[in-house]
């Protein structure tokens, strides 16, 4: 009995291996940012419903992880596209080139605003990015301008105009793309607004970068995990707490939470699309040109993503919380995909 079982299972494994590697991939595979995931899945589903091709498979791996997999090579074992909640970095672009992923098509698909939100029952909050930096950084400039461990425990210690409430910020962990945005959209520009930090930047660039890249670990900043719904629940029960997340969550949960104004601007669709609301960012999807002729439907997928019914104002992605791209910019994206224009690596940041 045992031998028979063993025989069957060995045969099954052999069969499965041959099936697995013999069949060419006929389904689009996408990896990348958890911020872009809800939008890409919506596009994938629309494409699947329209018929003709299989619904693309979308994995949520985070922007950095997605880039790594994307740049590993060309071929059916590697993803066809990756979502990114920031632009590709020069290092990643070079890594791609080295691994033979030469021709990459870049599409800007929309915006996401990073919002600080608090319970609807709490009193509204007006912050500046500098204040948020002072409240959250591990080290802040002391009275003599030298960096000291962050002494602030309440908001009014940061700035007397702010309420006397303990600093309690629920935010993303370091693995999250949202955390990258917190650093890049709020902490760095916030630090630059403080004279002592500006002086430090001129004197010691490394120390300055270290200052805005490190978030305090002594309690006021709580890493709340990638699940933003949990943050919303915590905000509801704790009126002192402030949550950090993407604008789509604020929009979906307007019944429970309100946004805090940053640098005098409240987050909404308009202020984010015009980039007036300072902590807003662009969302991208990167596609391998070499896969377009091989994987069926990849060109259709790209075209669907930037089509008017998806990405434009009033499109279904707006209903999902994406802040749509202005018409002119969307037209550029459409032209890029129609002409299959590839990236040159110019203008990418480090």
């Amino acid at each position: 009995m045992n031998k028979k079982f063993l025989g069957i299972s060995v045969a099954a494994l052999a069969m499965a291996v041959s099936v697995g590697s013999a069949v060419a991939r006929d389904q689009i595979r996408i990896v990348g940012s958890s911020t872009v995931y809800p939008f890409t899945t919506a596009v994938a589903e629309q494409l699947g419903k329209a018929g003709g091709i299989k619904t693309p498979v979308v994995e949520s791996t985070g922007t950095g992880g997605g880039m790594k997999m994307f740049c590993e090579g060309v071929g059916e074992n590697f993803p066809d596209a990756t979502n990114a909640s920031r632009r590709m970095k020069i290092g990643e672009f070079e890594g791609c080139q080295k691994n033979g992923v030469k021709d990459i098509i870049e599409l800007m698909v929309g915006y996401d605003g990073l919002t600080l939100a608090l319970s609807k029952k709490a009193q509204p909050l007006k912050l500046t990015r500098a204040q948020v930096f002072l409240a959250l950084a591990k080290q802040v400039p002391g009275p003599d301008g030298k960096l000291i461990a962050n002494p602030y425990k309440t908001w009014n210690q940061v700035d007397a105009a702010l309420p006397n409430r303990p600093i309690e910020v629920l935010g993303p962990p370091p693995t999250s793309g949202t955390r990258d945005s917190l650093h890049e959209l709020i902490m760095e520009p916030g630090a630059e607004q403080i004279p002592a930090m500006k002086a430090l930047k001129a004197a010691d660039r490394k120390a300055f970068d270290a200052a805005w890249k490190s978030i305090r670990e002594d309690g006021p900043y709580v890493e709340a995990g990638e699940n933003d719904n949990v943050i919303v629940q915590k905000l509801e029960t704790n009126q002192n707490a402030i949550g950090v997340f993407g604008y789509s969550f604020l929009e979906e949960n307007v019944a429970k939470i309100q946004g805090a104004s940053i640098d005098g601007v409240m987050p909404d669709m308009d202020t984010i699309a015009s980039l007036k609301y300072s902590p807003s960012r662009e969302l991208f999807i990167y596609i391998k040109k070499a896969h377009i002729s091989v994987v069926p439907g990849l060109d259709k997928f790209a075209a669907e993503y930037v089509s008017d019914k998806a990405a434009a104002e009033g499109g279904y992605l707006e209903k999902k919380g994406l802040v749509p791209v202005p018409k002119a910019k969307l037209a550029t994206s459409k032209a890029n995909i129609a002409a299959q224009k590839v990236m040159t690596g110019e203008g990418l940041s480090k």
Partner: peptide, 11 residues
Amino acid sequence: AFIVDIPQAIS
């Protein structure tokens, strides 16, 4: 991953 199609086989 986000997978809409119902799987038909183990691959």
